[in-house]
Simulated scan of single mutants.
Amino acid sequence: MRLINTTTLQLEEYFDRKIPPYAILSHRWEEEEVTFQDMIAEGAANSFKITGCCQRAREDGLKYAWIDTCCIDKSSSAELSEAINSMFKWYKNAEVCYAYLSDVLINGFDSTSLSSMFRRSRWFTRGWTLQELLAPHTIIFFDITWTEIGTKLQLRPLIEQITGITHLLNFNRASIAQKMSWAAERVTTRVEDQAYCLMGLFGVNMPPLYGEGDNAFRRLQLEILEVSDDESIFAWKEDLLWDTAGRMQSNLTLLQR
């Protein structure tokens, strides 16, 4: 696992039991993100997102942080596959997760306005952020200026309203059909990621095969059936399709309620 030293902003690599305590970032990918190659060549001193994450981690007494955009060498298919299959575990094992909402600004807004801005954040619409919401024990939400909004526990009623997730703190008690419903309206850039982003939520692993399209979801269902006897999985059609935005079409939802 490759981590950012929050003081030097340099990448360091650790393995298995030697992984030190770390903070982890949850965010939406935007047009200009610092990649692994950028970190090696130029560093991250000019990235407000990375430096803000590292500063808060230092304040919380953490020497290391993990950020997906720059800690994974995506030019390596083997490393990318390992990261996708490990991501849920990495978020679960983090000391704290910082959810950075770049489309929310709380300064100058009253609580009603904050609730509205928080509710409309696109962070709640992304496929990958579902596991990033559920896996970590502690999540702290921040606005675009790195001003703290609140924790998952403090904001629980509002988050449950936004997401429809009634098992926010004990998602393992939910049925397969319920978990699928949480993801149904979320979007991913790649069609395949609609399945890959759910692997950790269901406790399964499979190699990502970008280019397989809709077959990724069928493979996911088969993997789930290998580890679970929860028949609610059959409440979902096997031939799920996605629209051009990577979102499951609205008519392809639960067959039973």
Rank of each mutant, 00 (worst) to 15 (best):
249 Q>C: 07
212 E>Y: 13
254 L>H: 10
225 L>V: 05
87 M>A: 10
230 D>F: 06
91 Y>M: 11
197 C>F: 09
77 S>C: 15
39 M>L: 14
102 S>K: 15
50 I>V: 14
236 W>A: 05
39 M>S: 08
119 R>Q: 12
4 I>T: 03
49 K>H: 08
140 I>F: 04
64 Y>Q: 05
34 V>M: 08
247 R>N: 01
240 L>Q: 00
131 Q>G: 00
249 Q>K: 12
237 K>I: 11
223 E>Q: 14
3 L>W: 14
172 N>A: 05
134 L>C: 03
250 S>H: 03
34 V>E: 11
63 K>F: 14
187 V>R: 06
16 D>H: 07
154 Q>S: 13
207 P>G: 04
167 H>Y: 06
147 T>P: 04
158 L>E: 14
18 K>Q: 08
183 A>S: 12
230 D>Y: 14
13 E>P: 02
182 W>F: 01
71 C>N: 08
6 T>W: 00
182 W>V: 00
232 S>H: 06
229 D>W: 10
25 L>A: 07
18 K>W: 06
171 F>G: 00
21 P>R: 11
156 R>G: 03
155 L>A: 13
193 D>F: 14
13 E>W: 03
131 Q>T: 02
34 V>W: 03
155 L>S: 12
85 N>V: 09
75 S>T: 15
253 T>F: 00
94 A>G: 01
177 A>C: 05
25 L>D: 11
184 A>T: 05
116 S>Y: 11
131 Q>Y: 01
149 I>R: 02
90 W>M: 09
225 L>R: 05
225 L>S: 10
249 Q>F: 01
71 C>K: 04
166 T>G: 08
123 W>C: 07
202 F>W: 13
132 E>P: 02
99 A>P: 01
197 C>Q: 02
39 M>E: 09
119 R>H: 15
51 T>C: 07
117 M>Q: 13
143 D>S: 02
124 F>H: 15
47 S>F: 13
82 E>I: 14
35 T>W: 04
221 Q>W: 03
137 H>V: 13
33 E>C: 07
83 A>G: 04
207 P>R: 02
44 A>E: 07
71 C>P: 15
73 D>W: 04
198 L>Y: 03
161 Q>L: 11
109 F>C: 15
91 Y>K: 00
67 I>A: 01
155 L>P: 06
72 I>F: 05
239 D>M: 00
21 P>C: 06
205 N>C: 10
255 L>D: 10
122 R>N: 00
231 E>Q: 15
210 Y>Q: 12
103 D>G: 01
13 E>F: 15
19 I>D: 07
24 I>K: 02
12 E>M: 09
137 H>I: 15
98 Y>D: 03
47 S>Y: 13
